[in-house]
Amino acid sequence: MFKYILKRLLMSVFILLGVSMIIYFLIRLMPVDFIQDKINAINQGGATVSQETVDAMYKMYGLGDNSFLGILGGYFSWLGALVKFDLGTSFVYGIPVADVIFEHMGISFLIALVATVFEFLIAIPLGITAATHQYSFRDYLVTVLVMIGISLPSFFFGQMLKDVLALKLGWFPASGLIDATASYTGVQLLGDYLRHCFIPILTIVILSIGARMRMTRTNMLEVMNSDYIRTARAKGLKERVVVNKHAFRNTLIPMVTSLAGLLPSLFSGAIITEQVFDLPGIGNIALDAMNRGDIPFIMGYNMFLALLSVVGVLLADLMYGIVDPRVKLE
């Protein structure tokens, strides 16, 4: 087992190297130029920037040479710094990338975690009940409702909830993360956070229940039709035990696959939802960085997600070994 994990981690290093190279090249080829934007801004202010200053700036940011070898050189200098656990300094914020990520990740993680917990708590029982009452009124009702949930775009639905719950009813704050007029500390501050995050979380939960409910229903239906469920019934087990023990335990096996994608999604931030509610989450920051060509930040953010993805897949594989006795990891 230990050997297996070690082997997988070693392989991950190579995967991450490949990923970082691809991302770096793509970003460098992106039609966004941080320096040019900066100079344009200065020019608009009325000042003029000499060509020497421009060249010096390109050189200072390491973006001077856009030939293949130039980009490759840039990549290796990024990699060299990474080996020393240095993700570089964000162009936009002027502080280390790691600090920017950790500053904004917390809130995104909080929202994603709470939303995911509720998503599972709601979607799985719904999926089970829809499967055990297949083609009944209950099944159709649940299916229709979650399909509506899947189909709604988050910018529209988030805006709608905001309009109703925050602007019309005034139950929740409409945007931002903290109440600027009050100075809360400790538990009160956390409460204020949660009050601000309520509508974004609600939006995410409603939109994401559908997929997981459909998945649970499909898996459950497949399991419920299998021979060993018939055996369990023939033994004289109560239907409740048949469903919740014998069937559910087997639906966990395909569900574990989705865990691989769960880990990065907890930290990646919800770009659109954060935009709608003007939350300083990492998704919002990342989109901004992308628009402004903040190369070190985009690299740091994407590599962070890549690392989480690799770890997520590894964890999912390890979980397989636990939930399915037929799987042996070696």
């Binding site: 299998s226 019934r233 023939a234 004289g236 087997n250 096996i253 006795p325 037929r326």
Partner: peptide, 19 residues
């Protein structure tokens, strides 16, 4: 069911719960 009448099925390969 189960207590008074028990059943043995046709497919032993799939009739036991794998987990």
């Amino acid at each position: 069911r189960g207590s008074q009448i028990a059943m043995i099925f046709q497919e032993p390969m799939t009739s036991l719960n794998p987990v």
